[in-house]
Design a protein around this nucleic acid. Sequence first.
DNA 1: GCGACAG
DNA 2: ATCTTGTCGC
Length: 208
Amino acid sequence: MEKNFAWAIEFQKQISTRINTRDIPNKLETFCGIDVSYKGNIAYCSAVIINSNFDLISSVNVKCKVKYPYIPGLLFLRESGPLLSTLRILGIQSDFDILLVDGHGILHPRKCGLASYVGYAIDKPTIGVAKNILCGSLRKDHFVEYNGSILGYVFKKEGKNPIYISIGHKISLKKSVQIVQKLTRGGQRIPEPLRIANINSKNHLNFD
DNA sequence: GCGACAG
DNA sequence: ATCTTGTCGC
């Protein structure tokens, strides 16, 4: 029962040509983290917004039906729907400056991971933060290289597994790394907005 | 053909 | 991601 997802691959190649890998003039006061967990065929998506002082500004939990399977390299098919629906609801009550997504940005076979697609879709500065690498080779200087280009950075915390940071959209890799490091509290592996969003998404009782 | 493979 | 009990370590 395999399907043709060739269209999705072409779509990613198309979107990748529209990704902005530079910083844009923007405030850096509020940060949104968003993540999804699953139960059967239901996706539970949570988004939270915090400020530079880690104060909670806003949060939403949204339930959605799963429409696509998980296919390595095509995570956006499965998660962009729930993420965009949730961000739309969140937007009704609060705005934010930077979005952090659980998954790769341009550190991707077609330079268009989930974080890049979502960032492009909402047209906001977005950073990709993944817990595992999908492609590329690790360099001693902590950068990740793929097809001759520096597309990511490995952030390793003592005693913890590393995380992989990459540009989602409308931000540079340098600033992406600075932000992720500032948002990662001592003793933690995951930057706060994503860590809280991940916890909330697994709390299925807080969904309508 | 073989191995790898975000969440 | 999710399925799962006890268990090792700070």
